[in-house]
Write a protein that binds this DNA or RNA. Structure first.
Lengths: 355, 355
DNA sequence: CCACTTAAGCAACGCTGTTGCCAAAGTGCA
DNA sequence: TGCACTTTGGCAACAGCGTTGCTTAAGTGG
């Protein structure tokens, strides 16, 4: 619930309903009983009964069997109805477009990947994007989430200068696509979309950093359960941190940037050194933000994951370990086939669950 | 408002009352009219009237004159009553103890600094601390905030291994002092307390990093208006980030740590180099978190501020500037005489204002 | 002096979660 | 098989929240 605005009864109702939906989403196939929901929300069982009755009336939740009795009336299990709503996620990458249709539970119902030249002009790309949305089966839709390489302004829905594609700088993508489709549209960075997807899957814990090593090196941060975007929605510029004062020059104008050192090692074929450098950046991140976990992704990492996971893990165990506590876990972010596009769709679904 | 718990009517009432109090606090001497409060909270004027009536009944707010008429009945101005409540802030530093008594508006009513040996044993220090609280004039107190050098567990109220003073590791400071005083006690790191003090003063904007250069180099982070502490309340370990791969060894076991390089330059008397190194770390921070501002403090900086502010500012202008936007401002954190102790007291006051 | 404007409170209201109570639906022992 | 007991969950009444509709208070300006 927004912390700097007043709250009235409809807002309160929405908040509690979203909270219950989120618990049902997390429970997944197992479902949850009214009393479990009451315990976890801190609300009274009667309040939960009223809320779940409304959710059932709206078709968002449904009965799903009963638990074993513990000596009395058995608990009735409730489950989210995944098909109650859908959202579309688009990933506009430099050379291809991925479109996925996702149901309320986050499961991909349909997916399509087509070649795309991000430099072909904004109008052409918008045309292709709108066509891909129209080609997906299910209706009605809650909205469309769009993920792109950063930097961009999430709040305004406007891309900044995408490296190599200056024509996108300042183009009002969100509003243009929303007008064309007649649907709500949300724009975010590819790394944030991937991080959101991980956050909702529960794989990252409450706070984590998702490090994406592809054409460049970026990060998506999830702090306290929510994607952290920063004051001007530009957070996550992880690749251009200085890890080698007066080191080799980087394309960004700086020296000793993590991205330059890491990608140079990859180009040399020295993956161990690339992982060691990446690990230094990950350790800086873990120490500054005290996160639960580090996740690795992106084309370079998924190609040959083992040396990266092993190398980063080693640095974190040595450098970011707090006395008496286990080291910060490092794992591969490999939960889904289209992590960025799915995360884009989740940008639309997340508010339904209060996230 | 906590985002993962249910909200009932009393919680809603508290939230809105805290919101109004926070606006009155921010308004300070100028006060605010009911309609201004309504506009800023999004609540109806009638709701604000009811809330302010309750606050006036409790003695937390009071009338304070009227605005000039704009053609009709002039607006009645409301103001926070600073003397309605007080809190104590304690700063347990390595060699001295600072105790301050602050009123609701954050103004220091009384202050006292006494020598202290943090290594004299937990019981002795607790005795001194309790004595200092008892010696302060005003009653009743909302509680006592305690700030110490980190690392520590804010949630549990237990210090970890303070460098040089192992006897504090695991000592249940918060509960021990709370029992002795019969008052609520909150424990936090000195850097977090200073950052909170800055946040409440409004000097840092919504998101900022406070960099503290004293015996060591630490940071207090304020993200989205709130102190960010991380999953295990260990966030802000800024000094041991790697900025020089394979650089000189640091006491922490790593190499090329920001703190080691920076303090070494200070020891050499090369303040420009110290500022340049510190600036590199600040730029890493600003890029990763997209903060509004960087603030500098701590004994070393306040001693000779100019080269540090100038040097860090130069690096940020060159390295952390986003296209088409002004650089991240760098300023000295010099708002108050006892920033850490005042922030410690604010740890107690902040919840009253919903922060 | 009076029409008009703006602020703020009173009263009634709708809706929230809570409380008190009761029916439903199991278990387990006699 | 019957009955006491446990546990779940809905019904009804309720207190209290912000909202709505309206009235009163307190100014300005012609």
């Amino acid at each position: 619930m927004n912390s700097d605005t007043g709250v009235n009864l409809p807002a309160l109702r929405n908040h509690n309903a979203a909270l219950v939906l989120e618990l049902l989403r997390t429970a997944g196939e197992d479902g949850a009983s009214r009393l479990e929901l009451a315990e976890r929300t801190g609300l009274t069982p009667q309040a939960v009964s009223k809320i779940t009755a409304r959710l059932r009336e709206e078709g968002l939740a449904a009965d799903a069997g009963r638990r074993a009795s513990t000596g009395g009336k058995p608990r009735t299990v409730l489950r989210l109805v995944p098909g109650a709503a859908h959202a579309v996620g688009l990933y506009l990458d430099r050379d291809e477009l991925t479109a996925v249709l996702v149901d309320l539970s986050g499961v991909v119902v349909a997916a399509n990947v087509v070649p795309l030249d991000l430099g072909a002009g904004t109008e052409v790309v918008m045309e292709v994007a709108a066509g891909e949305v129209a080609a997906l089966p299910s209706r009605p839709l809650l909205g469309v989430g769009v993920a792109m390489p950063g930097p961009l302004d999430h709040a305004a829905g406007v891309p900044h200068r995408v490296t190599g594609f200056p024509e996108w700088d300042g183009f009002p993508l969100r509003d243009a696509l929303a007008r064309r489709l007649g649907l709500p549209v949300v724009l975010d960075k590819d790394t944030n979309a991937a991080a959101l997807s991980i956050a909702l899957s529960g794989a990252g814990g409450d706070s984590f950093g998702y490090l994406h090593l592809g054409t460049g090196l970026g990060a998506g941060l999830v702090l306290g359960g929510a994607v952290y975007r920063g004051a001007r929605t530009g957070a996550g510029e992880f690749g251009h941190q200085t890890v080698q004062l007066d080191g080799p020059a980087c394309g960004c104008g700086g020296r000793g940037c993590l991205e330059a050192l890491c990608l140079a090692a990859v180009a040399r074929g020295d993956l161990d050194e690339a992982a060691r450098v990446l690990g230094a950046g990950a350790a800086n991140l873990a120490k500054l933000l005290d996160i639960d976990r580090v996740l690795l992704g992106g084309r370079v990492v998924t190609g040959t994951a083992e040396p990266f996971v092993r190398g980063v893990r080693a640095v974190l165990e040595e450098r970011a370990r707090r006395a008496g506590e286990p080291p910060v876990p490092v794992t591969l972010a490999d939960g889904s086939a289209h992590p960025v596009a799915e995360g884009a769709a989740q940008l639309v679904l997340a508010p339904v669950f209060g996230r």
